[in-house]
Design a binder for these strands. Structure first.
Lengths: 310, 310
DNA sequence: CGCAGGTTTTGTCTAGGACAAATTAAGGTG
DNA sequence: CACCTTAATTTGTCCTAGACAAAACCTGCG
């Protein structure tokens, strides 16, 4: 029960900072400065790991490592997000209070009450509005709360897991669509967040698309294989805000090269907002844009037979 | 569409072999021997990546790297698993033919037919037998098929995703249990397979336990936090056969230290079969054992008030 | 205010060396 | 021949320290 020290591998796992980065920071900035065990290997005390976690969080919000690592411990807690959060482009009538109440349920770890509330909203609003007005905004707020440290990791996991259940259940009740665009939905190897994919699936399925959900974390080459095996028209990927921005273009370029030209590559999620466009890849900054694009695709398709995607 | 070369980071992602290992093998065995790009950095042709993938698969089956890397390409394809597969300890009356047919549906990428078949079995057998006689054996066979290379990664993903849906849906129909043991279900950071957890959840929920599903890949420290926040009696972890055996004990020891003594730590899944016992951790080699242990726990509890777990 | 240019910051790669843990092989001994 | 103990080997991870390209930031000019 007393706090053991962390090996460099353990710190990498827990903070998401690579071993290379940890060693580099130590060399350059003098933090973290771990103890050494009997073999001369780094042994990070848990305070340092905790501080690293906080630093990582602030970095994800746009702060630069050089500043953060020079800062004294106390100053870290008070830093605000550096990027203005993009204004929520939600329908004007979002039930702000209702959302807060639902988040409070998660915060109280009351799984049953949360599930019940979700189910009730779903029944009241129907799947489309449920996704757009409840799940998507909730998931945004959970992301924000997590960045601020108001939500712990396990609370985020609980939220995700329960929300996924309700969504999946709702999707299961839809009639099995056949035809129209066939869409493979998945995420790249380091992206484990699947709630966005599920929301997209729900909306796409509502529009009559045939969705092939492959879960998260597919090796790129396998995504290409899957797309061909399923004769997909579109591959849809999701990147969460937590995903390291800098790596997204490389992933997309590589996948685009592996994928036949006539299969579309659609990308969405909070992680793609500030990404430079990649040729042959369609970016969507909101679920709604995705649905619109799907409708356009269907229209183009029915008009002119097999159309080559660009 | 022409095969681009892989950076060392891309190979790490796609094969699961660490950069250190890739460089070490190159130094020691002369394979892989990547090209170099303009900056002198390794650039792996896709044949080498393919071969590495195959080598990794054989290693997971118990072969040793030294042998495999010395072997010519053709010889690799013919190697059988090195460990005798543990005989299936399934109920005698497993519908072998039915299972094969279901696997065939996955192999044909016919998601709808597979889902339909699952639903039908579930309705016919009830949740408990559905889990024990259908999902568990299927998942074993998929694991085997994957090891043999008869299943591709994306086919395994499709199987998992669809099976999870049906299971979750079934769990959702169960009455929300309150009380009895409260069980937090999750997996460690490098373990992304969640089907086993879901099977366990189904069976535990059937026995009246209150399950708190947190999804997969929770940092250890967060598992400890979650267990306390939810006032859990038991933390249940799952390790798949694909999980690197060598790392399991370290994870369990670390988590055991972080967890209050009176919270039980139960571990199951295909990955724990050949693991030396860890003090304070209960291992289960089958779902059935887990259910029996749960019943025993309930009995002990009701007999003597709050009992200290060992 | 916006854009072209130079400068700093930052992450990732490279090389080879060291060592402990795991595994296999070898040497008895009952 | 089975079994245990010890020695040799295999293998993964960690270490240091240097290099460099890409991104982010600043600055001056129109």
């Amino acid at each position: 029960m007393n706090a053991p020290n962390f090996s460099i591998a353990a710190v990498e796992r827990d903070t998401g900072l690579s071993k290379d980065v940890l060693r580099m920071w130590e060399r350059r900035y003098g933090f973290p400065l771990p103890l050494r065990d009997a073999n001369g290997e780094r042994a990070y005390p848990s305070e340092q790991v905790e501080r690293l976690r906080q630093i990582k969080r602030l970095m994800d919000q746009g702060h630069r490592p050089g500043k953060l690592l020079a800062l004294p411990v106390e100053a870290l807690a008070e830093l605000a997000p550096r990027y203005a959060r993009p204004a929520y482009s939600e329908a004007v009538t979002v039930d702000e209070q209702g959302l807060s109440e639902m988040l409070a349920l998660i915060k109280q770890h009351d799984a049953n009450a949360y599930l019940q509330t979700l189910q009730q909203r779903l029944a009241r609003l129907g799947l489309q509005h449920f996704v757009q007005d409840i799940v998507a905004p909730l998931s945004r707020r959970v992301g924000d709360a997590w960045e601020d440290g108001r939500f712990k990791v396990f609370e985020e996991h609980l939220f995700t897991e329960l929300s996924k259940r309700v969504l999946r259940q709702a999707i299961a009740t839809l009639p099995a669509a056949i035809g129209s665009p066939r869409i493979v939905l998945t995420s790249v190897p380091d992206e484990q967040h699947g709630l966005g994919l599920l929301m997209a699936e729900a909306l796409f399925a509502l529009e009559g698309a045939e969705c092939i959900p492959l879960g998260t974390q597919m090796p790129l080459i396998e995504i290409a294989h899957a797309a061909q095996a399923h004769r997909a028209d579109i591959v849809a990927l999701s990147f969460s805000t937590a995903f390291p921005h800098r790596h997204i273009p490389a992933h997309l370029e590589q996948l685009r090269r592996m994928l036949p030209d006539d299969i579309g590559l659609w990308v969405g999620g909070g992680g793609v907002s500030r990404i430079a466009p990649v040729p042959g890849v369609n970016f969507f900054s909101s679920l709604d844009d995705g649905v619109k694009a799907l409708n356009a695709w269907v229209k183009a398709q029915s008009g002119s037979g097999t159309v080559r995607q660009t």
